[in-house]
Design a protein around this nucleic acid. Sequence first.
DNA 1: CTCTGTTTGTGAAATTTTTCCCAAAGTCTG
DNA 2: CAGACTTTGGGAAAAATTTCACAAACAGAG
Lengths: 214, 214
Amino acid sequence: METKPPDGLTRIPEPTIERLSAYLQCVRVLRAESHQSASSAEIARRTGIHAAQLRKDLSYFGEFGKPGLGYNLAALEAHLARIMGLDKERDVLLVGAGNLGRALSSYTGFGRRGFRIVAAFDVDAHKVGAKMGDCPVYALSELKRVNAKLGAEVGIIAVPTAAAQAATDSLVAAGVRAILNFAPTTVEVSEKITVRNVDLTSQMEILSYYLRVE
Amino acid sequence: METKPPDGLTRIPEPTIERLSAYLQCVRVLRAESHQSASSAEIARRTGIHAAQLRKDLSYFGEFGKPGLGYNLAALEAHLARIMGLDKERDVLLVGAGNLGRALSSYTGFGRRGFRIVAAFDVDAHKVGAKMGDCPVYALSELKRVNAKLGAEVGIIAVPTAAAQAATDSLVAAGVRAILNFAPTTVEVSEKITVRNVDLTSQMEILSYYLRVE
DNA sequence: CTCTGTTTGTGAAATTTTTCCCAAAGTCTG
DNA sequence: CAGACTTTGGGAAAAATTTCACAAACAGAG
């Protein structure tokens, strides 16, 4: 168990990043159940991820466990949160005030994790001006101007397919660097921007594939 | 270009299945733009997936292209739909009639792809009896009884974390074989059942990671 | 302080997935 | 119908990711 150079250089595999979030979720549950510490085997059992995988994932970022004891959960949670950049609140812009947009704006899960939807945007003049929950709805054309004040770096796209690229471009022009895209289409962005696609229909289709075989 | 044994045996990589849905989406767009055929390079450009990847993915299922010409889009769409089991309508049960459940029930994207939410379930007696859009809301306890008639094989979980496992168990007991889980937790199911997790908060956390580096 | 239990972190092996590459197949032009 | 292009399918190489397996680290009991 040697010390590693505090390497900020080696690229972290994307699957690792995706699992980190699962570990964090698991650690929170364990802590809520008043556990003080847990072994990689215990976290593995709960998340369905292989224990060696967990240890290797964490080892990219440092040494957080104690042989014979496992991981101190309070410390691990703090480390994971810091690694994921969750140690500060993030303002979020929502584009699209339709059904999905409304549901997302009232979804409490984001807020609990420090993601605050601070403004919504829509092309529909009927929706502009009103509030959605306690989130003001602006005209899409106002996005850049509004965010000049807000300075949000995260955006959510909840518009129809045809409007997705334009919404993306508006967000990027306004300084947003990370986008959660619910439209069932690939949007083009410069490589500096991170986009994650959450295509509900695609998820259904994938389920359908596995249903296929009786 | 030799013929392959019509192998129903080789396991298809999961990433391949996930991409199949993206190809299908792309093919639909191309057809909507009145294209008759397209090369793997064209589809690759549009989806951001490597052309060789596309060809290999398709080659698991047969030979759908013509050298020098590419793929006939009408035929490819039909093949992809059949491969994914999308050649018939699927009834879907929705558990949870909260904000998210309501948004999902009114989401038109599912319907357009042949997924029909036929019934919703909730523990809250206030919600039971009313309709959500044109989808009836039943008591969760009625799920098995209701589905005895409906025979749906797909379920959506849109309940709080604490209720997710119980919702899953109800769905499985009622004969559901594929589940889309929006609760931010891993649910345990027998290996016969397919679960896909769509954890919105997790997606945000992953974005946060990539935002971290300035 | 020694012996027994555990459990970590990590090289190395195994496995999986992606990409390269090119012969074969087909189109198109003249 | 020959020659120039294009594009597929798929074997083989490369790359990425997961899993194994074990020395080293530490706790706790006696």
